[in-house]
Amino acid sequence: MRRVLPAAAAALTLIAAAPPPPVPGGLIDTLPLGKYTCELPGDAGGPVRVPAEEFDFTVIHGSSYRTAGMRGSYLLTGDLVTMTSGKLKGMKLHRISSGFLRRVDAAGRDDELRCVLATPANS
């Protein structure tokens, strides 16, 4: 009996040290803090981009954002951002790279709306 207890304790230690199982959709993460400016592409005969200010938002901490004076929250799993509350509730965005997002349409495809994290170079 004495030999079983140390073996059981060692097994429990290994289980506790193992990483958690994956979350459906990918690992949970957060977006970089800052203002995300959203826009639609322009055309050759007009402006290069068309601002879509109604979709602009600022990540303020963790998984919280602010837009139009309202706070909301989002969930980032893998490369999919889902706005879970606030003015943008229900909107889904595909994280293309750090600071670059594309809105996901009802069919699950990227559409034309893009949101870019403001940096000193583009603000």
Rank of each mutant, 00 (worst) to 15 (best):
residue 91 M to T: 09
residue 74 Y to A: 05
residue 117 L to M: 09
residue 45 G to W: 03
residue 123 S to L: 00
residue 109 R to L: 07
residue 51 P to K: 11
residue 80 L to R: 14
residue 61 H to T: 10
residue 73 S to H: 08
residue 51 P to R: 15
residue 65 Y to G: 03
residue 85 S to W: 02
residue 61 H to S: 15
residue 92 K to H: 06
residue 105 D to T: 10
residue 99 G to N: 05
residue 44 A to H: 05
residue 36 Y to S: 00
residue 84 T to K: 15
residue 45 G to P: 01
residue 5 L to D: 04
residue 82 T to Y: 00
residue 82 T to W: 00
residue 118 A to S: 10
residue 99 G to M: 03
residue 8 A to C: 12
residue 115 C to T: 03
residue 43 D to W: 14
residue 92 K to L: 01
residue 95 R to T: 13
residue 117 L to V: 10
residue 44 A to L: 11
residue 85 S to V: 02
residue 75 L to S: 13
residue 113 L to S: 06
residue 86 G to T: 05
residue 88 L to A: 07
residue 28 I to E: 15
residue 114 R to F: 10
residue 91 M to K: 09
residue 55 F to Y: 12
residue 17 A to S: 15
residue 105 D to M: 09
residue 25 G to N: 01
residue 118 A to T: 08
residue 70 M to C: 03
residue 74 Y to Q: 06
residue 23 V to N: 01
residue 67 T to Y: 00
residue 118 A to N: 12
residue 51 P to H: 13
residue 30 T to Y: 13
residue 93 L to K: 05
residue 67 T to Q: 04
residue 13 T to L: 14
residue 23 V to K: 02
residue 94 H to Y: 10
residue 104 V to Y: 01
residue 113 L to W: 02
residue 111 D to M: 05
residue 52 A to D: 12
residue 63 S to V: 04
residue 14 L to E: 08
residue 104 V to G: 06
residue 37 T to P: 01
residue 101 L to N: 02
residue 87 K to R: 15
residue 33 L to E: 14
residue 89 K to F: 01
residue 38 C to E: 06
residue 20 P to K: 08
residue 98 S to N: 12
residue 93 L to E: 03
residue 68 A to K: 14
residue 37 T to R: 13
residue 47 P to K: 12
residue 19 P to M: 05
residue 103 R to L: 14
residue 8 A to F: 14
residue 24 P to A: 09
residue 18 A to C: 13
residue 93 L to N: 03
residue 74 Y to E: 05
residue 47 P to Q: 14
residue 106 A to D: 15
residue 9 A to N: 07
residue 84 T to H: 12
residue 87 K to W: 13
residue 59 V to I: 15
residue 4 V to S: 13
residue 82 T to N: 00
residue 26 G to W: 01
residue 89 K to S: 11
residue 7 A to H: 05
residue 33 L to W: 07
residue 117 L to K: 14
residue 94 H to N: 14
residue 63 S to H: 11
residue 53 E to I: 08
residue 5 L to H: 03
residue 36 Y to H: 01
residue 101 L to Y: 04
residue 21 P to Y: 06
residue 37 T to K: 12
residue 74 Y to R: 04
residue 119 T to Y: 03
residue 18 A to Y: 13
residue 70 M to T: 06
residue 98 S to R: 13
residue 86 G to P: 05
residue 53 E to W: 08
residue 43 D to E: 11
residue 74 Y to H: 07
residue 17 A to W: 10
residue 87 K to F: 13
residue 122 N to T: 08
residue 20 P to E: 06
residue 95 R to V: 15
residue 61 H to R: 15
residue 68 A to M: 13
residue 96 I to H: 13
residue 102 R to Y: 04
residue 47 P to R: 14
residue 44 A to G: 02
residue 99 G to W: 02
residue 74 Y to F: 15
residue 90 G to P: 07
residue 18 A to E: 10
residue 79 D to I: 10
residue 99 G to L: 01
residue 112 E to G: 00
residue 99 G to V: 06
residue 24 P to C: 03
